[in-house]
Amino acid sequence: MSALDDAVVELYRKAATSLPPDVVNALSIARSHEAKGSRASLALSVILENIRAASKSARPLCQDTGIPVFFLRIPACVSYREVKNTIVKGTKLATRAVPLRPNAVDTLTEKNSEDNTGTGFPVIYCDEARGNRLIIDLMLKGSGSENIGQTYKLPDEALFAERELDGVRKCVLDAVQKAQGRGCPPYIIGVGVGATRDQVTRLSKEQLLRRLDDANRHPILARLEKTIRDDVNALNIGPVGLGGRTTALAVKIAVNYRHPATYFVDVSVACWADRRARLIYDIQNSKYRIQS
C-alpha cells in the first residue's frame, strides 16, 4: 500500500489545482448567459481566468483548500484501516507538497495541527467495491459553502412544505435564499432525502461527486433536478451573489426509503470551486490513475 502515498499526494494536487471539465464547461456556459459588462459577467471572467492560472501554475485555485472528504470503495481483500492510514499519511505529505492550507483545528485547544489531520479529519466514508479496484474519490469541500448547508424535517410550516417532492424543492430554495452569495455561487447543490438525519447528510454530500452533465436514472428526480435548478436561478442572486442569471450550475438529488413518520431533507452546497478528483488503484498490478 505504500505505493499509494505518492498517489494520494497526486490526487490532492489534482483536486486542489484544477476543476473537472464538466464544471469548467458549465461556468463558461453561465458566462455566455450573462449580460456583457455586468457584474456577473466580470465575476465569471475572473473565475475562469483564475481556473486557467491555477491549472497553469499548479497552484490551489482557492486559498481555502477545504475539508478533505473521501468516499472510498474498497475491494473485499483490502484492509480499510490500511487505506485510512495511507490517506492520513498522504494528507500530511500533500499539505507540504501542494501546498494545502492547514485547516485542521483541535476543537478543545484551538490549536491547528498544521498538517490537515486530526480526530475525524479528513472525513472518510467507506463502502465495499466490486472487483479488484480501489476507488478513492476526494472532494475538497470549501468551508464557506459547507456553512450554508441545511437539514430540514418535513413538513415545514413556514415553507408550506409537505412530505412530498415539492416540499424538497422548497427546502432547497430556502437554503439558497438564506445563503445568498455567502457560499461563492454559482453553486452545485446536492440533496439527500431519507429516514434519519445522519443518513441524509452523507447522501447529499455524495451527490456532489456526480458529473454535472449526468442524468439522474429516475425520470422523476431528473425532472425535479431541472425544476429546482431553474427555480434557484430565478432568484437572481447570481455569480458571487451580486445579481445575475446563474445561481446554481446543477442540482443533484438522491432519495432513500424513509420511515412513514420521518422525511428528512439535507441540502449540501458546493461553491463554484467544486474540487473533486478520483484515484483508481488496481490491486493486482499496483498501478493507479487519477482522473477528474
Partner: peptide, 10 residues
C-alpha cells in the same frame, strides 16, 4: 466584495 475563490488570480 472581492471575487470569492479567485485565489490565484488575486
Amino acid at each position: 466584495q472581492a471575487i470569492g475563490g479567485a485565489a490565484v488570480y488575486l
